[in-house]
Computed example of a mutant assay.
Amino acid sequence: MADNKDNPTPDAPTTATPASAPARRRWPRRVLISLVVLVALLAGAFWLLGRESTLQQLVQRISNASGGQVSVTGVSGSLYHRMHIDRLVYRSKDSVITADNIDINWSPLQYFSEGLSISELHVAALTVRSLGPSEPAKMPASLAAPFRLSLSDARLDKLTLSSATGSDVIERLRFKLYGDKSSWHLEDASAQTAFGNVKADLTIGADKPFALQGKASLAQAKAAPAGGAASAGGNAQLSLEAGGNLALITLKAQGGANGASGNANLALAPFDPIILRALDLNARDLDPAGFDPGWPQAKFSLKLSAAIAPDQKNSPANSPCKTRTRRRHWTSKACPCKPSAASWQAR
C-alpha cells in the first residue's frame, strides 16, 4: 500500500484537437467559390464584349481619339464574328479616303494560335480623293507586322482614284494577304481596269532593302461587233515579272497586241527623283492603225535602250537620246538619258 501511494499510477494521455483543423477543411470550399466567381466574371465579360452596343462604343472611342481624322457611322454586329460599317471616312492633309458598306468576318479567339485571322473582308466602294500635291515617297524603315495577319478573302467591288485632273476606276478587286515579321504575301489578286483584266502575285520582305518577287498579267479583248465574235488579232496580252528590291526594282515584260509583239527590261528606283534607271525595249510589227483607225497604216520595228545614273540631271546638255528613221534624225531635249542606242526602223 505504501508503494502504491509512493508511486501513483500516471493519468492516461489525452488527445488534443489541433485548432487549425477547421481551417484546413474550409480551404477547398473557398477555392471552389473563387473559381465560380472567376468563371462568372469571365462569362459576363465575354457576353458584354459580344454585345452590339459594346462594339459601337468601342468604335466611337476610336473615332473620338483620332481628333476628327476618322469618322464611322452605321456600326452593327459583334466583336466576335461579323461586323458591318455603313461608312468609314479617313482624312489626312493631302487625301480623303471613304469606304462604304464594309463587312468583316473574323475570329479574335484565333489570335493566340494563328494571329489576327480575317476570313472575309468585303467593301462595296472605296474612294481615294487627292486634295493636292503629295509629299515625295520615302523608303520605309520596316514593313514587319507586329503580329501574324491572315486575310483569306478580300473583295472590293469598286475603287475610285480621284484628283483634280480626273479619276480612274478599278472594279472587282480580289486578293488574299498574309503577313508576319519576316515578309508579306499577296496571292490570287485580280481586278478589272480600263486597260483589261489584271492578275498578280507578290512576295516582299519586311526588312530593308525589302527584297521582292512577283508576277502579273494583263489581258484585254477588243469589243466584238454586233452579232459577231471578237477577232483574235484584237486581243492584247502582257506578262510581267518583278524582282530586285524596293530600292531598285527590275521588271521583265513581254506582250503582244494587234499583230505586234515586244519585250522590255526595266530598272526602276521608286524613291529617287528620277524613277527610271534603265530601259531596253524591242518592239516588232507595229502598226499605228491597229491601235487607232484614225492613225496611218505602217509596219515598223522599234529598238530603244537607255541608262540613267542616280545623279543624272534633267537638262538638254545631258540628254543625248536619239531616235532615227530612214528620212530624218531628231534629238529629244526632254529625255534625261545618258548616251545610249535608240533607233526607229521603219518598213
Rank of each mutant, 00 (worst) to 15 (best):
S239Y: 11
P225Y: 07
S182K: 10
N245A: 03
A189C: 08
N235G: 13
S182P: 05
G228E: 15
A226N: 08
A224M: 10
Q254P: 05
Q254K: 14
V198R: 01
A219E: 14
A232L: 14
K208A: 07
G256H: 04
G196Q: 06
K176I: 10
K199S: 12
A257V: 14
W184M: 08
E187F: 07
G166I: 08
D153K: 07
A221T: 14
L212V: 02
G244M: 03
Q192L: 15
K181V: 08
R172A: 05
A194L: 12
T250P: 02
P225C: 09
S167V: 04
T250D: 09
A154D: 02
A226T: 13
K176Y: 05
N258G: 10
L246F: 01
L186N: 02
A257P: 04
S183W: 06
K208I: 07
G228W: 14
E171G: 06
W184N: 01
G166N: 06
N258L: 12
R172T: 04
A253D: 04
A194K: 07
D153Y: 05
R155P: 03
G234P: 02
E171C: 07
L159H: 02
A221D: 11
D188I: 10
N235K: 14
E187P: 01
N197D: 14
T193S: 08
Q192G: 08
G228T: 14
D180I: 01
A232G: 11
A200V: 06
E171N: 10
L159E: 02
F175P: 01
A232V: 15
L212M: 06
L246G: 00
D157R: 00
A253K: 04
L218H: 02
G227E: 07
G234V: 07
I170Y: 01
A194D: 09
G166P: 02
I170T: 03
A221M: 13
S162R: 00
K222L: 13
A257S: 13
A236H: 07
S190Q: 12
I170V: 15
A206Y: 00
N258P: 05
A216F: 05
K158I: 04
R174E: 09
L246D: 00
S167D: 05
A189Y: 01
A247M: 06
K181Y: 05
T250L: 10
Q213Y: 09
G259C: 06
V198P: 00
T160E: 08
A260S: 10
D157F: 00
L251T: 06
G196T: 10
A154F: 11
Q237I: 15
I204N: 00
L218F: 06
T160Q: 09
K208V: 08
R155F: 06
T250K: 08
A200G: 03
Q192K: 11
D201A: 13
K181C: 05
E187I: 07
G256P: 00
T193L: 07
P225A: 09
S217E: 07
T160P: 03
E187Y: 09
R155S: 07
T165A: 11
H185G: 05
Q237N: 15
H185Q: 13
A223V: 11
A229Y: 15
T250G: 09
K208D: 02
S239V: 14
G214M: 06
K252N: 14
K158F: 03
S167H: 04
S217K: 04
D188T: 10
D180M: 02
S217Y: 05
G228F: 15
G166A: 10
Q220C: 15
F210P: 00
G233N: 10
A226Q: 08
D153A: 11
L202E: 04
A230Q: 09
G255M: 05
A236T: 12
G255E: 04
